[in-house]
Design a protein around this nucleic acid. Structure first.
Length: 647
RNA sequence: GCCGGUGUAGCUCAAUGGUAGAGCAACGGUUUUGUAAACCGUAGGUUGCGGGUUCGAGUCCCAUCACCGGCACCA
């Protein structure tokens, strides 16, 4: 939540080699060389003995080779970079003499289908790196040459199937036919070794063990498109986008949703002894020079300049620096700790234009932010409390999550023993929750170790939302102290923490996770009352009033439309309840209840329905059915390390 | 920011370089309905914005803005 980590430095080349001096293998030599190698087939028995996860991983990595093979036919002379398996499939990065276009995808797919139908065998051979250099130079594979400079071993492996040859560590499937359930999906861009220019073309595809898995995945892609918050949000009249606006324009229904969520946030944290502050959005840059943001975060800040064109004011990108100012407004006692200070203020970050994504990544947003001032002894209990809150809050939305602990990075600041102590406290606290977590060695922020929470939604996507970060730097920079029991001045630790992450993003996640059908307590309109005919309008308004009196959000639809059509509109607006009222209901003082997507639920006296829905809202019942595709991704999450497969 | 793509009515989409159209929504009228689309009509556009080529540009070219798919970055 504080500043970003220092940008990743590319690994220096293991060996400094002048690629120009390598002599390329010509065609004749290559033929002789390749046919002299002791090629071994991939064992079918070994493959069959593997776990489903390992098999899927191999299928996807092999699918990348098959796709590259297809591209080789469509664009001869293509230089291939890396083609790993991913969580949903695979990709291969490449540069073609003539760039690929979307029109080529169909042709590539038909080549793929031929290659998988041909049942080519995958074979491999080990060769000295020096030979590989000459071989791939002769083939014009300049990215493979570059990769060779980064491989530390003396020998490398080659894999081939049909007439496609690749530098590859493997492992692969025995036959191309095992990859028959693969589909090339789209075309995009990536950067070779993180450098901006020249860029690579990334062809992405998906592959599955069974054809029904593939079709299920394709169905999932369709469903994702429909659930996209950028489509559903405007459709449900929650917010809209405008080319002139940074971020979304929030409409009344969207604001209701946000406020319901924020009210819930306030209630929850106030119960846990948090206090809320409200600070300015605009500060002199001195604040950020002191906090370190001026040096580490400047390019992401909106900066104003004075008449001399000197930077003077800055829109705050985070709540931590000015929370330090609040802490310092008086002398603090150890008796006040842990001191929990929350702030739900708009933050502005000048994100790169390409990073903007609907309401998930915007240049202005609100975090459910808080900073806790405490001592080392408090860390354990505090983290426990936070993990409990996370479990409780995410559980309300049927969101599952994973936890990781990021430890001391190489460029850490502060003293090692303090880090050790903090990490131990974090780890013990996490262990005491019984929740499984991964340790990301060296991935902590430079100012302290952190716990990151990744939400997994019903579409199997992971989002980093919640975070618990220990910070030793800000207290130092702002010279924060408290008076200890013995009268000495001591330095507190700061914990940065968020659970929803940002309300904007969390709303986006909820929309996509729930497909826009919110549980009753969150729905912007909770009930539509539908009079059958005009003469029932008064009764409909009476019913609505009784609901409104109990704080239920109601809409009465008296439009001159058929009942069928008004029911349809209520359904497409995903309103949880529609109450149909006609002569019978008006006479008996009842309502005919219709639940979203479930249809008729019978007739009840108004008072009874009011009590029922009030109970649903008060208990924050999760009364929606979420269509989930999680099963598609559970295998992958089970633990095959995907990123390792680099070439 | 970088690479590639897209941009036509509020929305979803049509329109060989030759008069910009349809459905839904909106508006007006008729209809008063019993659980997912009543009927008739009206209006709606400098084809993202700006240049250029052409007798003629939604269509071709250039530039720009926004969005989309990724990369990089991140809540």
């Amino acid at each position: 939540m504080m500043m970003s980590q220092a940008s990743q430095v590319n690994d220096p080349a293991d060996v400094s080699i002048d690629l120009d001096t390598i002599q390329a293998m010509d065609e004749t030599e290559r033929q002789a060389f390749l046919s002299s190698l002791p090629w071994q087939p991939v064992s079918i028995d070994d493959f069959k003995a593997l776990s489903k996860e390992e098999q899927l991983f191999r299928i996807r990595h092999s699918a990348a080779h098959i796709m590259a093979d297809a591209v080789q036919h469509v664009r001869p002379g293509t230089s291939f970079a890396t083609g790993p398996a991913t969580e949903h499939g695979f990709f291969y990065d490449m540069v073609s003499p003539e760039p690929l276009t979307n029109d080529d995808l169909e042709t590539i797919q038909s080549h793929i289908d031929q290659i998988t139908a041909a049942k080519h065998a995958f074979e491999f051979a080990t060769i000295p790196k020096a030979d590989a250099r000459r071989l791939f130079k002769g083939l014009g594979q300049r990215h493979k040459q570059d990769i060779l400079t980064k491989i530390p071993t003396d020998d490398v492996t080659l894999y081939r199937h049909g007439d496609f040859l690749d530098l590859c560590a493997g492992p692969h499937v025995p036959l191309t036919s095992i990859c028959a359930n693969m589909k090339v999906l789209n075309l995009s861009a990536s950067h070779w070794r993180g450098e901006a220019v020249p860029s690579l073309t990334r062809l992405t595809g998906t592959a599955w063990a069974k054809d029904k898995d593939l079709s299920r995945y394709l169905e999932f892609l369709e469903e994702s498109k429909k659930r996209d918050h950028r489509v559903l949000g405007p459709q449900l009249d929650l917010f809209s986008f405008h080319p002139w606006a940074s971020g979304a324009l929030w409409h009344p229904h969207g604001v209701t949703l946000r406020h319901t969520l924020m009210d819930f946030w306030r209630k929850t944290i106030y119960n846990k002894d948090y206090q809320e502050i409200l600070n300015p959005q605009l500060y002199r840059k001195d604040l950020f020079e002191t906090s370190g943001h001026w040096d580490h975060y400047q390019e992401n800040m909106f900066i104003f300049r004075d008449e001399q064109n000197e930077p003077d004011f800055v829109l705050k990108p985070m709540n931590c620096p000015d929370t330090m100012l609040y802490y310092k407004t008086k002398l603090r006692s150890y008796k006040e700790l842990p001191l929990r200070i929350a702030e739900g203020q708009i933050l502005h970050r000048n994100e790169a234009s390409g990073a903007i994504h609907g309401i998930m990544r915007t240049r202005n947003f609100v975090q459910d932010d808080a900073h806790v001032f405490l001592t080392t002894e408090h860390v354990h209990a505090e983290v426990q409390q936070l993990m409990g809150m996370i479990d409780e809050l995410y559980g309300l939305f049927d969101l599952t999550y994973t936890v990781s602990l990021s430890t001391r990075p190489d460029d850490y600041m502060g003293e090692k023993h303090v880090w050790d102590e903090a990490e131990r406290a974090l780890e013990e606290a996490l262990q005491s929750t019984g929740k499984a977590f991964e340790i990301d060695e060296g991935e902590g922020a430079f100012y302290g170790p952190k716990v990151d929470i990744h939400i997994q939604d019903s579409l199997g996507r992971r989002w980093q939302c919640g975070t618990i970060q220990l910070d030793f730097q800000l207290p130092e920079r702002f010279d924060l102290t408290y008076i200890a029991q013995d009268g000495s001045h001591q330095r507190p630790i700061v914990v940065h923490r968020a659970i929803f992450g940002s309300f904007d993003r969390f709303v986006g996640i909820l929309i996509e996770h729930l497909g826009g059908a919110f549980p009753t307590w969150l729905a912007p309109i909770q009930v539509t009352v539908l009079p059958i005919a005009d003469r029932h309008a008064d009764y409909a308004r009476q019913v609505a009033q009784q609901l409104t009196d109990q704080g239920i959000r109601v809409d009465v639809d008296t439009a001159s439309e058929t009942v069928n059509n008004r029911i349809r509109l209520s359904e497409t607006a995903k309103v949880p309840y529609a109450l149909v009222v006609g002569d019978r209901e008006a006479e008996e003082g009842t309502v005919s209840i219709r639940k979203y997507s479930e249809g008729q639920k019978g007739v009840k006296p108004v008072a009874e329905f009011v009590a029922d829905i009030k109970q649903l809202v008060d208990s924050k019942a999760f009364d929606v059915a979420v269509k989930s595709y999680k099963e598609l991704f559970e295998n992958v999450a089970a633990g095959v390390k995907l990123e390792k497969q680099d070439y």
